[in-house]
Nucleic acid binder design. Structure first.
Lengths: 217, 217
DNA sequence: AGACCTTCAATTACATGTAGACTCCTCTCA
DNA sequence: TGAGAGGAGTCTACATGTAATTGAAGGTCT
């Protein structure tokens, strides 16, 4: 009567490796040796192998045929191409969110915004990032489109990984203003406005990135 | 001196399974039993297991924890959500293609269009589909954005799979006109126009789908 | 010193064994 | 007749063995 549906070893290994990557314990470039990790995590090689393949699948690692996998590193240039995609997807998410929007969404967004504001006021970087991510997560969940949610989750994963290497922040103040504008557009119920404003937000982030990394066009 | 870089068994198994899915030999809903496939393909279970995991990864199959994998079936409703994403990505691809565009691209697109026209004239469905897909492939390759290319490839895979179940065609004539408009916009060098026209194209396909499947909003 | 070869340890990719979970079928009993 | 127990067979998930390859270290010759 204790049964979790998924008590597979591979799930735990995957989660633990993912965590080690995000904390930096496994830094970009680190080799993911299956036997070594198996010993470290005290499981056999099979679930480790499967977990590493999953990491490769969501591009937290890259593999070359007979040479194994290493923790991926997302450079500024790649991040710019990712943000080009992110721009249109966040726009779509905002549009769809408006079409589905309920009071619940608006209330939750306001809450995230308040937290964001407060975090910025007291210069709490971690809380700022958290509130920022929560705002975006709320919008995409509200889109109701499973593909949009999945793809934006993937992108967020890549961005988190990129933060190990590059600085991604593009002025916390700016982001806050942009979020406010997005909320206003959603409240107004205008899908086109929401799409435009959401796109403009990511566009600005991308511009900051491009400049900071100084290249590409 | 004969060495191909990748002579891994798993690659061949993956390719063969993929092919069997697209030809319909493995129809949506079919269970992918690892031991059975291993015997069928005359390899051991290991590479088959890895190949099946890859199929799950690109959503040609779905798996449930202790119950194995089955060939995925893409329903009309899911396809509509996929097309919502496809709309903005094709728009982005067209926009970026304009920014990069060279004469080579325009020439290749014209060629694909001519083939498309001819295939429609003689009612060759296979050739029509091929020329249609080629046109889109050219545009996204020209975008120069690796993420856009990868995501649209994924989407095309899903669409191909969906064709096993649903009819996706939305009037071959319409598609041809839309492609002509996209080419015109690209030739004119106006990124915004290209994005709008490309989006409108997918929008129409989606509308046709939504109607044909009669639901969703 | 520097280029090349050899050797060695580590690792990948594949093969195979097996406990426990799941499915399906049959048989029992109300 | 229909619900439910029981059992057989199949399969997944994990464990483990191993050939061949790779990368690194060290040695040799020029």
């Amino acid at each position: 009567m204790s049964g979790t549906a998924t008590d597979r070893v591979v799930d735990g290994v995957y989660a633990r490796l993912r965590e080690k990557i995000f904390t930096g314990e496994l830094a970009p470039g680190t080799k993911l040796s299956v036997p070594a990790l198996a010993e470290l995590l005290e499981v056999s090689r099979s679930p480790v192998r499967d977990a590493v393949l999953r990491l490769v699948q969501d591009r937290l690692a890259t593999e070359e045929p007979r040479r194994g996998a290493v923790v991926a590193s997302v450079g500024a240039a790649e991040l710019v191409t990712i943000y080009e995609v992110r721009e249109v997807l966040e726009g779509l998410a905002a549009r769809l969110a408006v079409e589905n929007a309920g009071r619940r969404l608006v209330r939750a967004l306001r809450e995230a915004l308040d937290d964001h504001q407060h975090a910025v006021d007291v210069s709490d970087l971690a809380a700022t990032t958290e509130a920022d991510m929560r705002f975006h997560a709320l919008v995409r969940e509200a889109s109701g489109n499973h593909e949009v949610i999945r793809l934006l989750d993937e992108i967020q994963t890549q961005v988190r990984l990129a933060m190990r290497t590059t600085t991604v922040t593009a002025g916390p103040r700016h982001a806050l203003d942009d979020h406010r504008a997005i909320l206003t557009a959603i409240e107004s119920g205008d899908p086109n406005a929401a799409e435009q404003v959401a796109r403009a937000h990511i566009f600005r982030l991308r511009a900051a990135l491009r400049e900071q990394a100084g290249q590409r066009r």
